[in-house]
Computed example of a mutant assay.
Amino acid sequence: MSGNEQLSTTQEKEEPTASDDERSTGDGDDELQLQVELLREENERLRRSYALARRSSYRRSALGLAAVGVLATVGAVLFPTSRDVLLALGGTGLFGAVLTYYLTPERFVAADVGTAVYGAMADTEGAIVDDLGLTDRTVYVPTGASNPEAWLFVPQHAEYEIPDGDALAAPFVVGDEPSERGVSIRPTGSPLVREFDAVRTGDPGDDPAAVVDQFADAVTEQFELAESLNADVSPDERRATVGVTDSAFGGVDRFDHPIPSVLAVGLAGALDAPVVAETTSGDAERADYLVTLRWPETATA
């Protein structure tokens, strides 16, 4: 065998063939795909575990209420002198247990998911406002309809006028006067106010303090959008200041954040007047953010 033939044979033994490279790449893709599938299964398992833990918490609360109801009912039999009170307590406990058990939510959405969805919307709408050179004024205008709807109007000029309802129905508002120009969008607070109105008890009327307090409770208790809200309402000054602590959806000073949006939409509907919302950083010791709501002198309050 000649020297050239020996060199060729040696190179063929040392160099990997194309089929070896393809096999190595294929093995790497298979391993990566397997890891992705394992992560997907683990993520789904964690979601199921989280939902199960939340449902179990509701079910334990229902069992606790049922136990109180049964004990109170038995006590009514054993202690006739306190029968009325114990029967009322027993009925309340059993009724609360039934409601808690059957009204347990079947699906829970993590706060991170809601924050991501809201963040994408806030960034997009905020960018539109900046590109159009509009003011930072956010005015929540009630539609005047029977349902709790409102428009979020962002005027082009600091000295502005509220357009009529038909003009606000279009995203880009071009009124007869320059002071009426701006953009109009559906605020995040409208569907939440609608949900709250469907279950709330008692109508606060057009009293600004009662309205703000009621919607502040809804933000923390029903929607769980914040740890706590503290309201200071001055009807004579037509102003309400609400301190927000531990928001579930991040910075409250972002565009049309659900917390000030709920408060402004609810107050605008109750007063049947536009409400201007402004959010600033608060004192870290008492509140993370301060939401200031203002309404005109012509409001029904």
Rank of each mutant, 00 (worst) to 15 (best):
A167C: 01
P155A: 07
L78A: 14
L86Y: 03
A158D: 10
A110D: 12
S57H: 06
V173S: 03
P155S: 07
F249E: 14
N147T: 08
G3F: 07
A169K: 08
E278Q: 11
T138N: 08
A240R: 01
T138S: 08
A88R: 07
L263P: 00
P208G: 00
S146L: 05
W295L: 10
N4M: 06
L34H: 14
L229R: 11
H157A: 08
Y118R: 14
A127Y: 03
H257S: 05
L89C: 14
P208Y: 00
L225D: 11
T245K: 03
M121I: 12
G251D: 15
P187V: 04
R194A: 06
Q6S: 07
P208E: 00
P163G: 02
L89G: 15
T17F: 11
E237N: 13
F249R: 08
D136I: 02
A53P: 02
G3T: 06
E285K: 09
T92N: 13
A62N: 10
D112C: 02
G269S: 01
T115S: 11
A110I: 01
A170H: 15
R45D: 14
L99M: 02
D207M: 00
I259Y: 05
P235N: 04
T298F: 03
P155H: 05
D27S: 10
S8D: 12
R47P: 15
A270N: 04
A111E: 03
V174G: 09
F95P: 09
A248D: 13
N147S: 13
F196Y: 01
V211M: 13
A51Y: 12
A67P: 10
A231W: 00
E177Y: 15
R181C: 10
D164W: 04
R186H: 15
D176V: 15
A210P: 15
P16A: 09
R59P: 04
S184D: 02
T73C: 14
T279D: 10
D246Q: 05
R60I: 06
V141K: 01
T104S: 04
A145E: 12
V174C: 10
T280L: 10
P163S: 09
V275T: 09
F95R: 06
G64M: 08
R239C: 07
F172A: 02
R181K: 11
T292S: 09
R239I: 04
R40M: 07
E161H: 03
A273Q: 05
S57P: 01
L46N: 15
E42Y: 03
S146D: 11
D272N: 04
D84C: 08
I128Y: 09
A120Y: 12
V174T: 14
V174H: 15
V252Q: 05
A110G: 11
D27R: 14
L63P: 01
D213Q: 06
V74K: 09
R59Y: 14
S82I: 04
S49H: 11
S61N: 14
G144R: 06
T9A: 15
A301I: 02
L34E: 13
T115Y: 04
D253M: 10
F249V: 05
A72S: 14
A169S: 14
P16Y: 09
S281C: 05
T124A: 04
V291I: 15
V154F: 00
E5S: 02
G269N: 08
F249M: 13
Q11A: 14
V244W: 08
E177D: 14
T300P: 00
V252T: 12
S228Q: 13
V265S: 12
N147L: 08
